[in-house]
Amino acid sequence: MDSNIKMRADKVNFFYGSTQALKSVNINIFKNQVTALIGPSGCGKSTFIRLFNRMNELVVNTRLTGKIYIDSQDINLLCIDAVDIRRRVGMVFQKPNPFPKSIFDNIAYGLRVNGIKDKNFIEERVIQTLKKAALWDEVKCRLKESALGLSGGQQQRLCIARCLAVETEVILFDEPCASLDPISTGKIEELILELKKDYTIVIVTHNMQQAARVSDFTGFFLLGELIEFGKTSDIFTAPKDKRTEAYITGRFG
């Protein structure tokens, strides 16, 4: 397998009860690149990225066929613990979801559950990740205050920092700016471009301009199918499929 490929989905079908949410999806996610998944609501793109950290297991009555690989390893094998996968594949959700704890504890949480007890190390890592998430200057004086007191955009950057602290390899963004204002959105996008150096990034978005701005590759989903996948520049300038073109030019969605 190509060493540039970080994650791969192979003929993935996914069912909620008897409804099929994903139909035979094949995709390659490249290392240190930003891959955007676009498509109208309910097309299965959020369901799809949740397969990469096995979050769909938490939903009852679901079924998966096909294979998901990370670094050529099948992540759904019985001997593999979902907890280990999630440590490697971080996730940022649609709505900022900080824990009702202090800013410091929010970041330290991931380290602590992974068995790190060294206080100095934790403190250093918290500072380092807050800086990386471009949040340090705004919160350095109130690390002990509740994270719920931050603004929506700050909360979302805190959630990103929380992922960074556990040193994941991949970060999945599930419509991270859906509930944010344009200025906060801009900051998050800058951050994503910055993080690309060290991480493989997958972002689900409704916002096509956002996909065009931040991503290297784009996949277009419709009704559970991956209609088209390719370089972002190609998808947005010369889509091969009529449906992709129709969506991008805003004829539905």
Binding site: L58, R86, P100, V166
Partner: peptide, 17 residues
């Protein structure tokens, strides 16, 4: 809220943690 449970699990915390 369900969302903070998901956040915790997505950081590699187990169910009991």
């Amino acid at each position: 809220p369900h969302s903070i449970r998901e956040a915790s699990l997505s950081l590699g915390a187990s169910k009991w943690e």
